[in-house]
Amino acid sequence: MHTIKDNPILKREIMMDHYESPRNFQLSNDSFYRQIHVYSQSCQDDIHLQILINKDIIEDVRFEGKACVIATAATSIMTELIKGCSIKQANEIIENYFAMINQKEYDENLLKEAVALETIGKQANRISCATLSWNGLKELLNENEKKQSESNKN
């Protein structure tokens, strides 16, 4: 297997592929989905993100929107990584993704194709593109946790 790390040709292919055919690119009308609208304060990136959580499992992740190649690919890759994960696993992936973005140690095996974005720090002004939906996902999971702990209290 080719490793993505330090392989710009493979990274470019991954980015192109996810930009040209984004995965999970259609919102659901199902009201059980939790939804968030994330958009950049400084550029045009504008994404609606949905997750469907059943017990502890993220059964589905979807998005729609208009965004640059970095934001679109980062979101598409994220949906593939997170779909089917437990919340605990998802949080671990998120943690590793942000560690990678911040040029700290991270687990390549957990991030798979997201490793294509490992050098985003080269263009510091684009970090916000690569983290837009990932921050959205974090927020959705936080909301979910709050709801859970509230309903546990009752």
Binding site: P8, K11, M15, M16, Y19, V69, I70
Partner: peptide, 10 residues
């Protein structure tokens, strides 16, 4: 090209 635009972050 789109590819070259992606390359700026690789």
């Amino acid at each position: 090209t789109l590819e070259k635009c992606i390359d700026v972050i690789l």
